[in-house]
């Protein structure tokens, strides 16, 4: 990823031997082994660089942008702020685990239909966040939607169509509660 003065890489081992740990994570229902990882690695880093799951995006690495949003034990979190080695025995669900065998979820489809995807970088985080909102609050008003996505920054500033997509899913689910994913 980006080269800004950062992050989430193990510290230079020459200066100081890294403290490592071997552990197992449960990601999207599968047990994944993480051997010899520096203990300071974030869940975001481990998912992307060790487990080949690039859906959670790495942008700010400081809990500001929401691009790395996912579920840990059903709770919406920024994975850059989760210590991977502390996420053992938790149920981790990433954007890759939302759809069912290659099918898009209703939220993903609505984002496409509404033209809510511009550069796309913020979209995986927004998809997880919108699922979280609509699963908890089936009929949010616009202020509730804005508050719910306030931690997901879209630098293309395409919020109008993102809000439209949320509204579309909300109405479709309210009309057909059985049809939601």
């Amino acid at each position: 990823m980006s080269d800004h003065s950062s992050p989430s890489r193990p510290p230079p081992s020459a200066a100081q031997p890294s403290v490592t740990e071997t552990y197992e994570l449960s990601v999207n229902g599968r047990a994944r082994s993480v051997p010899d990882a520096w203990i300071g690695e974030s869940l975001l880093y481990v998912l992307r660089e060790r487990l080949g799951l690039p859906g959670a995006k790495n942008a700010c690495e400081q809990g500001e942008c929401g691009s790395c949003s996912l579920y840990v034990d059903g709770v919406l979190l920024n994975s850059c702020c989760v210590l991977a080695a502390d996420a053992v025995d938790a149920d981790i669900r990433t954007v890759e685990g939302l759809g069912d065998g290659g099918h898009l979820t209703d939220v993903q489809q609505a984002f496409l239909d509404a033209g809510a995807v511009q550069c796309g970088f913020c979209i995986p985080g927004l998809i997880v966040t919108v699922h979280d909102l609509l699963d908890r609050v089936p009929d949010p008003d616009e202020l509730q939607v804005r508050e719910a996505i306030s931690g997901n920054l879209c630098r293309c500033t395409g919020y109008g169509r993102i809000l439209q997509a949320v509204e579309d899913v909300k109405l479709a689910r309210l009309a057909d509660p059985e049809g939601s994913s």
Binding site: S6, P7, S8, P11, Q16, V19, I39, G40, S42, Y45, E61, Q62, G63, N78, C80, C81, V82, L83, A85, D86
Partner: peptide
Amino acid sequence: AGGTDAMVEISFDHRRPEHVVA
């Protein structure tokens, strides 16, 4: 605890944990 301060310090290499108590 929640990690929202500690993880930012760790990721930006302002803190290198030798041992973590979660």
